[in-house]
Amino acid sequence: MIPPIVLHGLIYGGVAAIALLTLTAWGIWFERKFAGRMQSRLGPTMVGWAGLLQPLADVLKLLQKEDLVPAQADRTLYLLSPPLTVFFTLATVAVIPFGVDVAVANLPIGVPWILAFSGLMVFPVWTAGWASANKYALLGAMRAVAQGISYEIPMLLTALVPVIFAGSMNVNEIVRWQAEHHWIALWPPGPGLFAFVIFFLSCLAEANRIPFDIPEAESELVAGVTTEYSGMRFGLFYLAEYLHTLVASAVASALFFGGWNGIFGLPDGIHWMLAKTLTLFFLITWIRWSLLRFRADQLMRICWTYLVPASLALVMISALWVHYAPQLGPMWGG
């Protein structure tokens, strides 16, 4: 007899992990199709209708490739890094509420949990770069770590804003508060929306997406930390990047756009969470294929001289708002 809590973990955890990996695979298909259209190409068309089976073909191709380890590489760390990236990314998923009160684990420390695991992501990236014994990989890893830890500060500080308003660190409680009151990105005017913008930019930087993808700038660093990796191990890095993007979209929509809460009084549910997450994912893809990347020094300056002071100010403003104007609802009525 399996205890119900284990069963809950097995079912929810298994379903969430598999659903997200599937969603990620077709997220990659979507991005390739979108990129094609942006550049007046067709994108994948050959495998399946409109190239919809392309992700499966890619996985099969990567599976058949040789798993190479360079002679000078630190074998253990080199082999361990790719699965760790996927592992840490999936761990953040555990506390995200997908439907009304539906999460793998409804933890009271939800927000710090997400931030802690996304902070741990710099370790596999660094070990991968260091263990590869390749200068491109090492330089890429150094840039990735410097960028990752810098952008974690504004991320931590802006994720505080929903916590201050909702008075809880449980992500589901934050969404519930937004369902009962208003979405944090929309009201109060200012702190909520700016906090979302800064959080979103920091997520882009943490996931190494354009315009913050200097760690894998292919024009200077070949492929950054993934230079030496082949086959499925490269595939896992690739998967982790898209998974991270998707998870960041889900977290941002839960913290700032009311997660499973429906608009215009339509019924709440998982469809809203999915719609909001995919909208943000689309936005990230759009940004990626429209903008250029920043230089390394610009990147650090944007973080430390704009985003960090701004997020400190946002925390203060939110605290003052909650203290002095807690009853002041939005003009369209709570």
Binding site: V6, L63, P83, L90, A105, L107
Partner: peptide, 26 residues
């Protein structure tokens, strides 16, 4: 916290499964 660990186990199984496959096929 138990469901989290179960989920992490699923993640590990996915990663290990992929590597067993790739090392046997590649």
């Amino acid at each position: 916290y138990l469901p989290v660990f179960v989920m992490l186990l699923v993640a590990v199984l996915v990663a290990v499964g992929l590597f067993v496959l790739t090392s046997s096929v590649g």
